[in-house]
């Protein structure tokens, strides 16, 4: 199971990096979205993988997953949304001001 997660993180990171290196704003935003999935997953699994043991205190529970990375990732997801929103609006603003959706604000031949 750990190998699958590592593979997922690898795919998300690689794809995110590739898209972030593109020349137009929209693919870059998609790339950043993929990268934040990758980073959130990576942070989350730092608490190792646990199945069926949510960190909700219960007398009958056999054990608990590590709640700390979960708390960190929860806010990271919300902040990630705010960041995505900011970047995409910045892209819109750039397009309005510069007349292009190229990341460097220029139209390439």
């Amino acid at each position: 199971m750990e190998a699958l997660i590592a593979l997922i993180i690898a795919t998300l990171t690689g794809s995110g990096v590739y898209l972030a290196l593109r020349a137009r704003t929209f693919p870059v935003v998609l790339g950043l979205t993929l990268l934040s999935y990758a980073v959130n997953l990576f942070l989350f699994v730092m608490g190792r993988l646990t199945v069926g043991e949510p960190p909700v205190i219960d007398a009958a529970a056999a054990g608990y997953a590590d709640p700390l990375p979960q708390a960190l990732v929860l806010t990271a997801i919300v902040i990630g949304f705010a960041m995505t929103a900011f970047v995409i609006v910045l892209a819109l603003k750039a397009r309005s001001e510069l007349g292009s959706d190229h990341v460097d604000g220029r139209e390439e031949a």
């Binding site: 750990e2 690898a10 990171t13 690689g14 990096v17 290196l21 590590d66």
Partner: peptide, 25 residues
């Protein structure tokens, strides 16, 4: 570059996931 970055992140995740750890949880 993307392949290398992805591979690196994956290896790192694997290396961490397969190790026991101690937490303040």
């Amino acid at each position: 570059l993307a392949l290398a970055a992805g591979g690196g992140a994956g290896l790192l995740a694997w290396a961490v996931l397969t190790r026991p750890y101690d937490s303040i949880a």
